[in-house]
Structures are given as structure tokens and as C-alpha cells.
Design a protein around this nucleic acid. Structure first.
Lengths: 194, 194, 194, 194
DNA sequence: TATGAATGAGCGTTCATTCAT
DNA sequence: TATGAATGAACGCTCATTCAT
């Protein structure tokens, strides 16, 4: 029977997370070193690993939390048009397109990781599907194509979100903004008539 | 004034690439060791790094070449329907979805990399857009929606290809096959009427 | 707040030093390889570099210790004449003039190095000054010139020691032995009357 | 029968030397790379080694030339006192104490190098002995001790010159200037009465 | 629970020097 | 004579992770 974690433990965990967040804010995700985190948190290296399975787990916990926060902002809205749906993704893009690491990690966890347990990022992707599916359920009639269910359409939206972000980092297409590109994709994917 | 490389240099480069390809065939991408490559190629380690910036570059050169090869196979065809377009992607998926390394490298270079020079994989992604756009240009009338130009539609196809591959590795959706999923996406994206 | 190193750390450090000393005894200073040291000490390579900045530092630590040992032998004596002072330097010369590496490292650290922290060799040079100054303080009256203080005279002795060693390796003067040359220098530098 | 070098060869050699000198002026002696030299001179690497036995040879050629130049300045003078002799060394110190490499190389070549043929630096040291011996020969009577011949005294001067320079780079004694220290040494070494 | 010393396999690097063309 | 591709033996380093205390 696992008992509730002691208070000290929770404090240590919080200090580690805070230290990591500060370091990320200073130097970016990919410059994050366990060594620095424990130094800043004032604990030993071993302690880190008694709190987090590995560094990736810490990282995805932080990124996942950021993603969730942005998704809750989205969930609080109910866009009435496709364009507004696209625009409502801004907080989400802000999190994911922060820098190369966030893009890498998210694109990768959008599926490619050999994950057994559903980590915070995978969960966030699931939440994204739910949020946009929900939006579509509650949209004024006539806005959306009706030949496909919202779950499927949501997957498409996810694909275009990733595509928009990825291409934004790509030398071949750097000229167009994420959001402009995304808006065009969604219109093409979701509009009812042709 | 950089003059053309001498023949010997080209030969050495080819030997390194061949050695690497053989080792990958034997043990997989992630078991590739620079040490082994130079041993097999019969050159010094210094030589390796005078030919390739780092191991990742060699890897992307090889994977990029594989992608190009599969794309040329695709380019040699002219699918007549959306379904056949989807199916014609098989060689492409076979290359990218070989294993975790290929997926990782590909997805990363799909745009997420902060690449200044256009690497072979980025080039391959560009080629993919061209190939499918070309297909669509030459399809029998009535197969495709006509409200969007083929370049734009091609980007969508790319998005769904990445999505299909990524999701295939993802715990949330592992049950469905890449190609089935991809077929459904393309139908929804490209079919003319709803 | 750096706390005192744990016992295990000290043991490991000692093992590394011992391994290096044995290898040097076997094959000489310039045949010393980090790889061999860690193999002999039975530790990982990373451990080596967590204990010593680089190979040079290990080397200077060992040579410095040898110098110190020879200086302690010298300190245990009290030569009564200039000639005996010169002769008493033999253990010191034996250490420094062992081979080209010892000469190089020593000469270099004799001051030429841009060292911020005082390394073991620099410390040994300081100790040398103290030892010979001490000798001179306790010499029978009338042996030494009295117009200069012993600290200054000690610097001169050091200069001639380096000169003697250096010239010994030099094509211009190779015929005369270190100790003969050194004896003549000291006589000229220290004797009271002219 | 070795014929006179062709004009082109001399030009190439001069270009190499000039390139090296410029690079040294820019980045210091220890940052000198053969690669950079040949690039700047606009010749191939192999050419370098057809002109200079090895890099060290080039370096000692340049430093040796600098030393010789400063020694000729010294030779043109005839100091009348010990103090003036010390002061007259300034151009010499300026060359040798330029930076860590010049100190290393000269201290080392002051004897420590395994040199078979007498390189330019060894020659310069020999020239130094001659110059100061000459000075002493032509000094007004009564300035110098007379119990030792000038050749021997010259060696002592050399020893103190090296000592002064070396200690100047040394953390233990950094406070006093080269020339002050040197003046005191010479006075003590050369003055006639005590 | 926390500690922190040790791990370890491999990468990237160095760069003077050689040698076949 | 000049060329420049190739050499090669270490070195330094990385840094997440483990594990005995």
C-alpha cells in the first residue's frame, strides 16, 4: 500500500521543477542539464532520479503542463467559425513552437516515441483532439462538412497543426507564418462545400 | 576558390557510404558506429570527419538517398485514383517507418531542424511535394477537388503522411495500419464532393 | 559549499596516481596513456577526468610529488660548504633531468606557464627556494658572501640549477656534466671574496 | 651539386614566412596552424613541408630572427656599467617575453631541446653569450669582478636572463618587473667587491 | 530518502606529417 | 616542384544514469 508522499518530498519535487523551469527560461530546453537542475535546486543528483524516471520525463512533464495550460485556455472558448478555430490555436502554437526542442519533442511524441505509458505530452495530444472535436460539435450548423465525424476531423486538424509548425521551421517554406498556413489548411479541410 | 574534388576523394567518400550502408543493413541504423564504418571502409577516422560533418550527417545522407530512391519509384507511376495514390506511397513509408531511428531522423528533418543548408532529407520532402503534385496534375478529370491548387493539396498529403507514420508509433492509435489510416485521410482531403 | 571529499573518492584518486606511477616506472613519462591509466586503476575514463583536469595535470602532480620528495631529502641535510650544497642537489637533478618530458614539464612550469592556481611544480620551486635559503642561514660563518640576503641568493641558485639542466640538454655545451657546471656556478655566485 | 634555388622557390618561401608572421601578429604563436599558413600564403600543404622541415623549424626561424635582430641592436651598443648592461637587454626581453610560447620555446631551446643541428634559436643564444662577453671585454676597468673569465660570466648572465623572464610568468613572483629583477641579479653577479 | 562518486561507450577533434599523383 | 587527400593515435569530453552508503 503506497502511502501518501511526505511533505518534504513534495517540496523537493517542486524545487526541482522550479529549478528546471528557470533554467529552461534562461537557456532553452536543449541546454537543460540534470547537473544544473540539481545544483540550482540544492539537492543531490540521485535525488533527481528518485523523483523523475529520467530527464525526458521531467522535460515532457514541463512541456506537457504547458501544453495543457494552453489547451485549457482553448477549451474555455467556443469559436463560431473555422477561421476562429484556427486563430484560437495561438496559445497552443506559442507553447509548441517555442524552440527546436519543443517542436522535436512534440512532433516525436505526436506518435513516434516508443512510449508504453501515456506521458503528459501524449495526453495533451489526446486532449487536443477532444477540445477541437468538442468545438466542432457545438458549432453553428452549416459551418462544417458533415460527411465525416468530428473525431476524424480532429485528427486532421492535429496533422495540419503539426505540419504548420514543422514547415515553419523548415528552410523550404520559411516565408509564411504558422497561423496563416494553418488557417488555410483548416478552411480546406473543414469547409462544407466546394 | 574551391576546385572540383579529385577522383580519389570521391572514391573514398563512396567507400564510406557503402560501408555504412552495409553496416546498417546488418545491424540497423542505431547500431551504426563511426569506428565500425571507418574500419569497414579501410580509412582513418580523421578521413571520416573530413567527409561528413558528423555521424548524423552521414545518416541523413543515407536516409535521404533512400527516400529519394523510393520517391523515384513513386514518380515512375501515375496513380489514377486517390486510393491508388495512397497505396503508391508504400515504398516511401517502408523507408521512413523502417525503425525508430529513421522515423526520428525523418520527422526531425521534416522541418523541425534548424538547418541552414538544405540537407538531403529536406530535399526529399521537397521532392515528395513535387511528385504528388505532379500526380494530381495528370489525374483523370473528376477525381480530385478543384477548388485548390495541387501544390497546396500536396502539402496536405505530406501532413497526413507524417501524421500516419507518427500515429503508427503512438500508443493512442496503434491498432490501425499506416496505409489504412493514410487512405482514409487522403480520401477526405482530396475527394471532390461531400 | 564544497564539503570534504568522501573516503571513496580519495581512494580512487590514490589508485589513479599509483597506476600512473607504475606505468611511468615501466615505460617512461611520455609513453603514459590515459587509457592505460584507467585500465590499470580499474576505473572508468570519466572518473579520470573528474579527478584530473587533463593528463598534463596528472603528470605535473606526479612530477611535483617527486620533486617534493627529493627536496625533503635535501631539507634533511645541512651542507657545510658551497660545494656540498651543489652536490646535495643531486636527488633534485635526478628527478628533473630524468628525461625530456620531465625537463620540459618542469622548465615550463618553472614559471613559463600561464597558471592561475599554483600547481604542484610551482609549489616545488617555491620549496626549493626555502630549502636552500635555510641551508644558507645555518651555514658556518665565512662560507658565504654576506652582502645579499639568503632569499635573493636562493633565486640565483635556482637560476643556475635551471641553466645547468637546460644546458645539459643543449648541443652547445653537452660535454660537461650537470653537477660540475652547477658547482662552478654556485662557487662563483656564493663565495665571499674575490 | 646543389644548384641555387630558383626564384619562384624563394618567392614561395618568403610568402610562407610572411603569412606566418602576420598570423602570429594576429593571434599569437601558439595559435599558429600550418593549415592557416598555407591558406594565407595560397599554396598547398605539401609545399610547406618542402620548404620547412617541420612547423617547429618555421617557428624557431621566426623567433630566432627576432632574437637576432634584438641582439644586433644590443651589439651596436657598449654599456659602460653593469646597470646599463642590464638595461640594454630590453629589446631582447621584449622578444622573448612576448607570450607564453616564446618563453617556452626559448627556455626550452636554451638547452632542453633534443636538437642535433644548431637551430636559429640556439645560435641566438650563442650570439647572446658573445655579445655580453664582448661588452665585458670592453668595459672600463674596475666595473667587473676579475676572478672569472668573461665567457663564464656571460653564461651566468644568460641564466639570470632566463630566470628573470621565467619568474615573471610565475604566480609566485609576479609582482616585480623583469628588468628590475634582472638588474639586481647582474649587480650581484658581476660587481667586483663585496 | 537523500547522497554523490562512479560509470562508460562512443563521439568529435586535433593537426603535423606523409605520399602518390 | 607543387598538390591536397589521407593518416592516426590519443585526447578530451559528454552526461544521463546507477548504486553503495
Amino acid at each position: 500500500m503506497t502511502r501518501a508522499p511526505q511533505k518534504r518530498r513534495l517540496v523537493t519535487r517542486a524545487r526541482l521543477l522550479e529549478a528546471a523551469q528557470n533554467l529552461i527560461a534562461e537557456k532553452g530546453h536543449d541546454a537543460l542539464r540534470v547537473e544544473d537542475v540539481v545544483a540550482k535546486a540544492g539537492v543531490a543528483k540521485g535525488t533527481f532520479f528518485s523523483h523523475f524516471e529520467d530527464k525526458d520525463r521531467l522535460l515532457s512533464e514541463i512541456i506537457g503542463a504547458d501544453m495543457h495550460a494552453s489547451l485549457e485556455k482553448m477549451a474555455a472558448q467556443q469559436p463560431a467559425t473555422i477561421q476562429k478555430m484556427a486563430d484560437a490555436h495561438q496559445p497552443y502554437f506559442d507553447v509548441i513552437a517555442q524552440n527546436r526542442t519543443t517542436v522535436d519533442v512534440t512532433v516525436r511524441y505526436s506518435g513516434a516515441a516508443a512510449i508504453e505509458d501515456l506521458g503528459p505530452i501524449t495526453m495533451a495530444f489526446g486532449r487536443h483532439l477532444d477540445v477541437v472535436a468538442d468545438w466542432m460539435e457545438n458549432m453553428p450548423a452549416g459551418q462544417l462538412r458533415t460527411d465525416l465525424d468530428t473525431a476524424f476531423l480532429a485528427e486532421g486538424i492535429q496533422a495540419f497543426a503539426v505540419q504548420a509548425i514543422a514547415l515553419n521551421f523548415c528552410a523550404l517554406h520559411s516565408s509564411v507564418e504558422i497561423s496563416d498556413r494553418f488557417r488555410a489548411y483548416l478552411e480546406a479541410w473543414l469547409a462544407p462545400s466546394r
